[in-house]
Design a protein around this nucleic acid. Structure first.
Ligand SMILES: [Zn+2]
Ligand SMILES: [Zn+2]
Length: 910
DNA sequence: GATCAAGGCCAG
DNA sequence: CTGGCCTTGATC
């Protein structure tokens, strides 16, 4: 009961109209079942079906025949394929080449211009270009095992299977209809129109000789993807050759892909990608999208878990189709099946999969088998009807219904066949489907409905055990689901999860109002639309983790080009066109991996900082470079006036002066600022007059941008807490980096610093600390930012993302006593130039506390960075491989309602 | 126990 | 270094 109520709340709380209609729908739903649920499937006979279910418990399902058709050619070299290797069908030699290259971390260079043609005869000539092509066509680095474990299956297994099923289906289709894949008509084909008009509907045609029914091909969104391989390849190179991208592959048309991953293992998986198991790959356009653009009603944990447990519809579809084909082959000698007979067989088969689904979903399988059977016995018919209805919701045509096999059946003729009682029922379900369609009920919501039906404890007499277990689930999961509950100042009540990365995501950059790029340890750079969550591009060239990511706008031939510069541990640097995905420039074999990139727009150059500082022009030609700096080299760069830049090199800040005269370009170190006592972790520009640096031991120094003198010096020393009362909080927090400055950000006047697991805000004009909190997170704060509305946002190694508001302390003499964590923060203050004595922060007047106003729960790994799109939301990236877009629930709901009203108005409902 | 993708081996 | 062939082992 509790679970049901919770899920209802979670699902429908946000849009009241939604809730009402669902309730009405649910009542209607119930009536349908009570009155004629049995009648609808009289043909099938409940007892027989139940026998099937029971049978399913005893014996595993019949296996399907999957012949692999190896007639295809290797997308890299055109040789014959030998099977799926590292993500797609390739030949044996490219498999071996890819394996050797990745395993031995090989570095190749191209003797030509990095565009060598790769075919069967020339593939040996240039390993550099061959490997680049391997990456471009979609061979996956993460499929090469770090631990070299042999045998077994990896997470790609299910995907290979699905792809194989698709290919099989395509083959069958080609055989049956005599149609070539290339000439596949879109959903509305002439044959279908014929059928719709031909309303007499005799006996249902057999599928093999079909004239009227189109054995489905997945809708047009998936076929291009299928044609290209398992993954949408970045448009930058077509498969056959290195010719440039056809314009229709501009970013809007790339399908978005989802990787459903097992949740708890995000931490462990980075080390050995093959060891995690349990991954299912699904195409988002297939299972996640609704007919209208998805607006992001997405909930964490529980719903994600539900979605994760979903079956692959394509696989189910192909299995059922295969079954029906076999059935009809056996039957064709006698008499063909009637429409209704066919539908019964489909229902029969669907039930198998419903049972399979139930048994595979996490909560259900933890129950006793006896209880599982009780639950299933109670709801199988409802689930069957829901399955039917949900398919109609996503089927746009009013006068026909869509079957799981992709076949369409004309509604009027079905009604004639059905007779009075059943006809009423069919009409009823159509009506309900239409209501749901108007509400843009998306797949997730339907999935939740399925669970509501499955776990409806009121529906029958269950052993107390089940009820207890259900209560337990709801207890455990509920807390995690309550985004926005009791957080009145937190507008981020909706989230959308973006999947695509295979390893830690470390970098985010904003491209324009809508787009941003993400990059991480998997070497991939993905470009996304923040509003829709669509993945626009996948930029693949790097073989190791990305170490720097910057937006670069330059003018070429009087056109402004927005590009991305990426640098990686593979010692390459690339320039990408963010509109087309083209790789415009590549520099390989750099002497060291680049950790920071700084674009100097006014000088038309950019700098790369690795173990040496290099100056590049916009054509990616090296202009000059400094000498070698040992160890970690240049970790951060900021732009300064008068052609100067500041570089963080271990404990020093080195000021370099650029000379970009016509005759010669040079870069010279003109000053070494040695005031930091430990490694500099962060360097930022504050405003025209100041830049700031932060070190590993908590020093923050403000520098003058012109004469590089110290303007302020803060050493953050969290004072020891009062042992008696705080001993438990202190436990486990004594880390070396406790006072380390992990990150700095400035809005021009104030600077916010991530210090250990705490935060402090400093006013550069007043030269005072404005606010602080020693324990803002349970672990190190990795990134922090001052938001436009004055709030502070921070994210941490512990996976949390929090929003803070500066609030004046009621009693300046008292420590900030509200909040969850430490209250004993003190900052020792000194000045190298002056003689300001150390004094306690608490005595500083006007000091504010940072009050927690929002806690964004969603990530299960360290949150590395975030990006704010103001009203459109905030994007976070994490070690759990995910990106999450956090959205203003009220705004999104408003937009949804608006869209709904517009749609209803259009249809004349109002 | 069959399958099949991943790693290993080694003559060329 | 290449690529054909062999061994391995999780998954079904
Ligand atoms: Zn090949
Ligand atoms: Zn080449």
């Amino acid at each position: 009961m509790a679970l049901v109520r919770n899920v209802y709340n979670l699902l429908f709380r946000r849009t009241s109209t939604f809730a009402i209609t669902i309730m009405v729908g649910a009542v209607f739903f119930e009536r349908v079942f009570d009155q004629g649920g049995d009648a609808l499937f009289d043909n099938l006979n409940r007892g027989k079906l139940w026998k099937h279910i029971k049978h399913n418990y005893e014996k595993e399902e019949m296996d399907c025949i999957y012949g692999v058709d190896l007639e295809e050619l290797c997308p890299v070299c055109g040789d014959n394929v030998s099977g799926y290797h590292y993500g797609l069908l390739t030949c044996e030699s490219c498999k071996g080449f890819f394996k050797r290259t990745v395993q031995n971390n090989k570095r190749y260079t191209c003797a030509e211009s990095q565009e060598c043609k790769i075919d069967k005869t020339q593939r040996k000539r240039c390993p550099f270009c061959r490997f680049q092509k391997c990456l471009t066509v979609g061979m996956r680095l993460e499929a090469v095992r770090a631990d070299r474990m042999r045998g077994g299956r990896n997470k790609f297994g299910p995907m290979y299977k699905r792809d194989r099923a698709l290919k099989q289906q395509k083959k069958a289709l080609n055989r049956e209809s005599g149609l070539k894949m290339e000439s596949m008509p879109p959903v509305m084909s002439p044959t279908q129109t014929d059928y719709a008009l031909n309303s007499t509907l005799p006996n249902l045609p057999d599928i093999s000789s079909n004239k009227n029914i189109l054995l489905n091909m997945p809708s047009s969104t998936t076929s291009p993807e299928y044609e290209q391989g398992l993954y949408p390849t970045p448009g930058c190179m077509s498969l056959g050759s290195h010719s440039p991208l056809p314009s229709q592959y501009s970013y809007q048309s790339l399908p978005c892909r989802t990787i459903k991953s097992e949740f708890p293992d995000h931490y462990a998986s980075s080390g050995s990608p093959g060891s995690t198991g349990g991954y299912t790959y699904t195409d988002q356009t297939q299972t996640m999208s609704s007919p209208t653009p998805h607006t992001g009603l997405d909930l964490p944990a529980l719903v994600l878990e539900f979605v994760r447990c979903e079956q692959d519809e394509l696989l189910v579809r192909s299995k059922i189709s295969t079954h029906l084909t076999l059935l009809q082959q056996n039957q064709s000698s006698t008499e063909p099946l009637s429409t209704f007979g066919l539908m019964c067989h489909i229902a029969d088969q669907t039930l198998f999969f419903i049972v399979e689904w139930a048994r595979s979903c996490n909560f259900f399988k933890e129950l006793k088998v006896g209880d599982q059977m009780k639950l299933l016995h109670n709801c199988w018919s409802e689930l069957l009807v829901l399955d039917y209805i949900s398919r109609q919701v996503h089927h746009d045509e009013q006068d026909s219904i869509l079957l799981i096999t992709g076949q369409k059946v004309d509604l009027t003729s079905l009604l004639t066949q059905a007779g009075a009682t059943l006809g009423e029922l069919v009409r009823g379900t159509q009506q309900l489907a239409q209501h749901l369609q108007e509400l843009q009920l998306d797949c997730r919501e339907i999935i939740c409905l399925k669970y509501l039906i499955l776990f409806n404890p009121g529906a029958g007499r269950l052993s107390t055990d089940v009820v207890k277990n259900l209560a337990c689930f709801s207890e455990n999961r509920y807390a995690a689901l309550c985004i926005g509950e009791e957080q009145p100042k937190n507008c981020y009540t909706e989230l959308q999860v973006l999947r695509g990365h295979f390893d830690i995501v470390r970098f985010l950059v904003q491209i324009d109002d809508f787009r941003f790029a993400s990059a991480g340890d998997d070497g991939m750079v993905l470009v996304w639309n923040v509003e829709t969550g669509e993945r626009l591009l996948e930029l693949r060239a790097h073989t190791q983790q990305i170490t720097a990511l910057t937006v670069y706008t330059c003018t070429r031939a009087e056109k402004t080009l927005t590009a991305l510069i990426t640098a990686s541990s593979d010692r390459m640097m690339c320039l990408w066109d963010v509109d087309t995905g083209h790789r415009l420039r590549t520099v390989s074999s750099l002497p060291s991996s680049v950790k920071s990139v700084l674009v100097l727009d006014h000088l038309d150059v950019f700098l790369s900082g690795g173990n040496e500082l290099c100056v590049w022009n916009k054509e990616f030609q090296l202009q000059c470079k400094t000498n070698h700096y040992r160890d970690s080299g240049i970790t951060a760069l900021v732009d300064l006036p008068k052609c100067c830049v500041a570089a963080a090199i271990d404990k020093e800040i080195v000021i370099f002066k650029l000379n970009l005269s016509e005759a010669e370009t040079s870069i010279l170190a003109v000053r070494h600022l040695t005031d930091h006592q430990d490694t500099i972790r962060m360097l930022i520009r504050v405003n025209d007059d100041l830049f700031a640096s932060g070190s590993h031991i908590g020093e923050v120094i403000l520098w003058d941008t012109l004469d590089w003198t110290i303007q302020a010096y803060e050493r953050i020393l969290w004072e020891e807490p009062d042992r008696e009362s705080q001993s438990e909080i202190k436990m486990g927090l004594q880390k070396q980096s406790e006072a380390s400055i992990q990150h700095l950000h400035s809005d021009g006047e104030r600077v916010v610093a991530a210090v250990g697991s705490g935060l402090f805000v400093y006013n550069t004009r007043m030269k005072t600390v404005v606010a602080y909190r020693k324990f803002a997170h349970d672990s190190d704060v990795l990134f922090t930012k001052l938001l436009h509305n004055g709030q502070v946002m921070s994210c941490s190694e512990d996976g949390s993302v929090r929003i803070w508001e500066l609030q004046e302390l009621p009693l300046p003499a008292e420590p900030a006593s509200s909040g969850f964590f430490g209250l004993f923060s003190t900052i020792g203050r000194s000045s190298k130039q002056g003689s300001v004595p150390s004094k306690k922060l608490l005595e500083v007047s006007g000091l504010c506390s940072l009050e927690l106003v929002g806690d964004l729960i969603g990530h299960s790994g360290a949150v590395q960075m975030f990006l704010s799109f103001a009203k459109r939301g905030v994007v976070t990236c994490s070690a759990d491989h995910l990106l999450i877009v956090w959205k203003d629930g009220e705004r999104e709901s408003h937009l949804r309602s608006l869209a709904l009203f517009l749609k209803m108005e259009e249809k004349g409902c109002l």
